[in-house]
Design a protein around this nucleic acid. Sequence first.
RNA 1: GCUCCCGUAGUGUAGUCCGGUCAAUCAUUCCAGCCUUUCGAGCUGGACACCCGGGUUCGAAUCCCGGCGGGAGCACCA
Length: 479
Amino acid sequence: MRETKPKEFSLPDLAAVEGPVRMRIAPNPSGPLHVGHSRMAILNDEYVKRYGGKCINRFEDTDPARIDPSGYDSILADLDWLDVKISETVIQSDRFELYYGAAKRLLEIGKAYICTCQPDFWRDLKAKKKPCPHREEPISEQNARWDLMFDGGFGQEEASLIVKTDLSHPNPAIRDFVALRIDETPHPRTGTRYRVYPLMNLAVAVDDHELELTHVLRGKDHLNNTYRQLYIYDYMGWDKPTYVHYGRVSMGEIQLSTSKMSAGITEGLYAGWDDPQLGTLSALRRRGIRPESIRRYWIEAGVKEVDIEFSWKTLYAFNKEVVDDSAGRFFFVDEPMRMPLKAPSALTANAPVHPAHPERGTRQLEVPAGGAVYLSRSDVPENGERLRLKDLCNIVFRDGALEFEGNDLSVLREGVRIVHWVPEDSVEAEVKMTDGSTKTGLAERGIASAKGEVIQLERFGFVRVEETSPRIRCIYAHR
RNA sequence: GCUCCCGUAGUGUAGUCCGGUCAAUCAUUCCAGCCUUUCGAGCUGGACACCCGGGUUCGAAUCCCGGCGGGAGCACCA
């Protein structure tokens, strides 16, 4: 059965939808969000938008050593910028009692045990499909050890609560898993109030159930975690949400590892989390990449379980579409070379602010008689070569000067190149590129009024004007 | 090593469940042409794919088997 091709790309329908959905995004507050993270946020948001319901933000901060306290705020800001609608935010470090309760119950119904083996020893046994000596000990023993865990009778790695699955499970990743551990590291939010920390599989299963989620969307790197969490659901007799696992995204060259970005910042390699070299959302925002473009990208990528390669080219193409209509045009000359212009009189260019919108007017650029213009080094013509100075006139280059050669546009048919230029009264400007370099040059004066806007530097690319004083500073977006 | 998942053009994606209308969709990319004003703009056109091998069938991208390839997990991280 063939259906008419939808003009707009859209996500496939979710399975098992009965009324409003409840979904969640579950960031770890270890730093700001990057493009990779934006996928889960946007996908969840899209489905909640389609079916109605709620999208819950849950901070997963159950590893005190891996939290950057600024993440709680920066992630919320990033989500807001992405236009992801959060109905409610919960923080796992507020909910430890809930996890303890579930863990205690698992212990009491014989589906969990407290192990005091050396971790390596326990892992080896597991690999051999053998139970550790504590696995089948009586409940009284287990309870005694539970108390010791909480009272401080055990130190880090001396005891942990383990959920039983199936030791003979063919997949070694699914056999018994740790659910509660002891950690003395102070937590940024709760300090030393707790010393027993849940691990993700316990916390996630309990929360997904408590929050009454209908659908869980996650990367397929969590596939085995899903299988583990399902054991908890079964033991507790909970209804299961519908899981969707999407494939891995390979992002290519760009640096996305939170720890590496953080290290790069301290080393001075990057100016901050929003350095244009990075793939953080704050960096993209600075460059003028619009959230709509990112959203469209992830919608087109879909939720298939295949691994995909991220294409910056495609994202840029989408962004160009979003941004082009409102981007005013300006001339910027990189590596400027002063070229005397021999013309019979003063010249004035009336360059359109936007070629598709004549109603927005023109930029008037004056070249006085006997004056000069600047060209980019790479545009300097060869002796005898003719050029079209865009929106100004035709010239021929002879003996180090540009000679006026009328204004007849038909020369373009002969293959004469068109180049951009700036007059002598232009202002210094710099463009921060995404490879960390900076291009300096001259821009027409009018650019000073475009602060904060995304503009197109003709024949150079789209940039966002970040500062206009004391000097013009732009961040490069894409061509 | 063990386990699981996946395999349509350069990159994504539709189609695969319910085999024919698929000599395979759309987007992006790339190339060419057009355009008396830019462009890396616009328009038009073009190029590029069903991992391989068997089998079932009148007919397979779609079903079966085998191979190959890619990814993930086997953490007291998430």
